[in-house]
């Protein structure tokens, strides 16, 4: 899935000379945690997070509450240079960046111009879309030998029963690398017949089972 299909296109931004207090207000009002800082040409020159703003704010424990710091420009606390991503990059790349770099927001830039923003939450939403339930369906997990054509062979069972597949995931089988686990969401309330079909095959249904392997 492309970044462009996951990103938000309405981005709340500030320019370098804006006060930290303005940033604080925008973060609060919009329930967001990051603001890209842009110049007049919509080029991203920095980014600030709610944590940057909090670090710059006076402590509520101070005896004299000094708000002077909040009138400094955001450029004084912004992170630069900014890691950005392209609308035609992929969801996997975002996940890798979030994981490796330990931050949670990426401005999306095309021809040096800000066109969108993507956060950890957007990425998780996409993940939920990929693994979740959008149509009424049952889930089964099948242990299969890791060989060419195995997905096609397993899919043929569903086709024969006229059962539509809603989603497929492939996991490694941790105990033995010669096998894989296929997770299917199938559009039937009655998986009994298909489970019976698999009984006489080389494929093994591992879940659902009484001895839940996911414990």
């Amino acid at each position: 899935m492309f970044v462009k299909d996951m990103m938000k296109t309405e981005v709340i931004t500030l320019q370098a000379e804006a006060k930290i207090s303005e940033a604080y207000q925008l973060l609060q009002e919009n329930h967001i945690r990051h603001i890209p800082i842009i110049d007049n040409n919509k080029q991203v020159i920095g980014i600030i997070s709610d944590r940057d703003v909090r670090d710059a704010s006076p402590s509520i424990l101070d005896e004299v509450y000094n708000e002077e710091a909040l009138s400094f420009p955001v450029s004084s606390i912004m992170t630069t240079p900014v890691t950005t991503i392209h609308p035609y990059d992929y969801v996997e790349e975002i996940a890798a960046i979030f994981y490796d770099r330990e931050f949670a927001c990426l401005p999306v830039v095309k021809n040096n111009i800000l066109v969108g923003i993507i956060t950890e939450k957007d990425m998780l939403y996409t993940l939920i879309q990929l693994t979740g339930t959008h149509v009424p369906s049952s889930q089964i997990e099948i242990k299969v030998p890791d060989r060419i054509g195995v997905l096609a062979d397993v899919s043929a069972f569903f086709k024969r029963r006229k059962i539509k597949v809603a989603s497929v995931l492939i996991y490694p089988y941790l105990e033995d690398s010669n096998y894989k686990i296929l997770v299917f969401r199938i559009q039937t309330m009655n998986p009994m017949n298909i489970m019976d079909d698999f009984k006489d095959s080389e494929f093994e249904i591992v879940s659902p089972s009484l001895e839940n392997p996911h414990e």
Partner: peptide, 9 residues
């Protein structure tokens, strides 16, 4: 739970 069972919701 819809973990395995139809309809999943």
């Amino acid at each position: 739970t819809g973990r395995y069972l139809y309809p999943g919701t």
